[in-house]
Amino acid sequence: MQGILPFVVRRLIWAPFVLLAVSLVTFALGRFGPGDPVEILQGQYHDPERVEAIRHEQGLDDPFFAQYGRYMWDVFHGDLGTSFTYLGVPVKDIIFDKMWVTIQYNLVALIIIFAIGIPAGIWAALRQGTWQDPLTIGGFLFFRSVPVLVTIPVLQFIFALKLGWLPSSGWVEKDILGMKIGIFDKRIIMPILALSLPGIAGVARLMRAQTLEVLDEDFVRTARAKGLREIVVITRHVARNALLPMTTIVGFALVGLLGGSLFVEALFGIPGIGQFTWEAVGNRDYDVIMAVTLITATAFIVANLVTDIAYGFIDPRVRLGAGGPRY
């Protein structure tokens, strides 16, 4: 793959600068904004002197760039700071536990998105020209259009209140092989449903477009001409070739799910990273906000890079040079 290496190197060189800019903006927003974590923590009838003492102790009265520099220095040494809300607990001790909760059900949602989206896309492509094609795609598109904060209460209304099949919220962990797993509980069905429904449309559409493209290829005609059964043509020849480009969107699909988790966790009471972040913004828990932003931004950049590289490998027609035309 000539041409791809310089591209990757260039993006890798830029990545730290992008991260630095992101961290600076977030840090500034936190520090220059109203609200003070110490005051919030000390409650309404706080003693001003005590607040000042704590601020001094925590270095919150230092100049902005001194605070920023100190924070970044610590980050480079693997220290993500300490939480104000969970007094004195290092952020990294909490954040990975919270992330584990979120990642568990996000992965399940990701699998469901692809497991439904891929066959739905193939099916829609094969039914092109009939009413079934637009109905399938349109149906999934509906769920992508509607925000989760609408879907979730409606789901709760139907399944918890009207039908009474599922509990309306909660998160129960089971101990499996020494790991805390929460996805084998019926409480998680609705959150996963709410999280995966909006994602299916994108996968189904891309799969449909890819399948349509492959269906026109000569080797598909040959396969049919030599008398293979249609199911074999579709699974062995069409699907396999149409699937390859799907790998490029896995990264973004996962990162996209993380954004939706904020609302899913708030509405279903799941103690994951989304709820944690929400709480941290409310309490001006600077270090937690910074850590979440940095981790999310890194995930975005990595997903972006992996996607571009994957495109380059899968479809060499995609030229990644700066000057060349990009389609």
């Binding site: 992008v18 927003l29 904004g33 954004g259 904020l262 913004v281 932003t293 999310t296 931004a297 975005f300």
Partner: peptide
Amino acid sequence: AFFALPDILLLLLITAT
């Protein structure tokens, strides 16, 4: 950089601050 920023979180911060 804007693409890498978690937009909901940032919108939250910006509007709050």
